[in-house]
C-alpha cells in the first residue's frame, strides 16, 4: 500500500512554545487514520500543519518536512493554495458560510473557476448526495445554510469539501459539537468516503477511533507515543502510556 502523506522530523513552535516534537507519521492512501490523545497534546496542531492552516498564525514556526505524494508542501516553490485544494479540511465547529446551501457547496468550484451552471448544479447534487445530505435539503437549496441544524451544517461542510475533489480530507474533531445521532451519521459517512479519499481525523473519542479508522496515532505532550493499526494499538499497546490512556487512566 502507498503512503499518501508523511511527516518527517516535524517540529512546530508557537513563539517559544514547542508544540510538536520530532513527529514522524506515515498516512496510508484511501484509509482512515485517527489521531488521538488528551487535549493539548498537539494533535490539532498537527492536523492543521498538514494543510498549512497554521500559516495564518503569526507566531507559527516549524522545521522538518511534510510530504504529499513525495512532494514537500512547505517547499518555497509550492503554492499554498494548490496544497489546500488537494487537502481539504472539516473543522471542529461546523462553519458554513452565511450563504445559501447551494452557494456553500458551489463556493469551492466557483473559486476554482467552474462557471457552467449545469455543471455546477450537477456537481453540487453529487457532493450533497455523497455527504448524505441531499434528501434533506434538495427542496431548499436556496435557503441560508445558517438555518440548518448543527449536524446538517457539518455534513454540508463535508459536501463543500468533497465538491472540489481533494485527495486528502482532514477532520478536526468533526463531531465534538454534535449530538449522538448526528455523530453516527457522520461516522457512516466517513466509512463511505474512505473508498475515495484519504481521511485523517482528530478525535478525543476513543470509541470513534476504533469505529472509523484503520490506523491510529497516539499523541502525548507533542510527541507520537505509538502509531499503527487501530486494532493492534487498542488491543495490544506496546507503550505503557498508550495503555494508560486507552484504559482511561488519564486524559
Amino acid at each position: 500500500m502507498k503512503y499518501k502523506m508523511e511527516s518527517i522530523d516535524l517540529n512546530v513552535y508557537f513563539d517559544e512554545a514547542h508544540i510538536l516534537k520530532d513527529v514522524n507519521l506515515k498516512i496510508h492512501e484511501k484509509t482512515v487514520t485517527s489521531l488521538i490523545g488528551p487535549s493539548g497534546c498537539g494533535k490539532s496542531t498537527f492536523i492543521r500543519t498538514l494543510n498549512r492552516m497554521n500559516d495564518l498564525i503569526d507566531t507559527f514556526k516549524m522545521s522538518g518536512t511534510v510530504k504529499l505524494d513525495d512532494e514537500d508542501i512547505y517547499d518555497s516553490k509550492v503554492d499554498v493554495v494548490e496544497v489546500r485544494k488537494r487537502i481539504g479540511m472539516v473543522f471542529q465547529k461546523p462553519n458554513p458560510f452565511p450563504k445559501s446551501i447551494f452557494e456553500n457547496v458551489a463556493y469551492g468550484l466557483k473559486t476554482h473557476g467552474m462557471s457552467n451552471k449545469e455543471l455546477l448544479k450537477e456537481r453540487v447534487e453529487e457532493s450533497l448526495k455523497a455527504a448524505a445530505l441531499w434528501d434533506e435539503v434538495k427542496d431548499k437549496l436556496d435557503m441560508s445554510a445558517m438555518g440548518l441544524s448543527g449536524g446538517q451544517q457539518q455534513r454540508l461542510c463535508i459536501a463543500r469539501t468533497i465538491a472540489v475533489n481533494p485527495e486528502v480530507i482532514l477532520m478536526d474533531e468533526p463531531c465534538s459539537a454534535l449530538d449522538p445521532i448526528s455523530t453516527t451519521k457522520i461516522e457512516d459517512l466517513i466509512h463511505k468516503l474512505k473508498n475515495e479519499f484519504t481521511i485523517i481525523i482528530v478525535t478525543h473519542n476513543m470509541q470513534q477511533a476504533t469505529r472509523v479508522s484503520k490506523h491510529t496515532a497516539f499523541f502525548l505532550h507533542g510527541e507520537i507515543v505509538e502509531s499503527g493499526l487501530t486494532d493492534k494499538l487498542f488491543l495490544e499497546p506496546e507503550d505503557k502510556r498508550t495503555e494508560d490512556y486507552i484504559t482511561g487512566r488519564f486524559g
Binding site: N51, M53, L56, V81, E82, V83, R84, K85, R86, G88, M89, F91, K93, N95, P96, F97, P98, Y107, G108, T111, H112, C157, R160, T161, V164, P166
Partner: peptide
C-alpha cells in the same frame, strides 16, 4: 475566523 478558515481550507486564495 471560522468563515475565513473554511474558505482557505477549500483552496481559495
Amino acid at each position: 475566523r471560522s468563515y475565513r478558515e473554511g474558505s482557505l481550507a477549500i483552496g481559495a486564495t
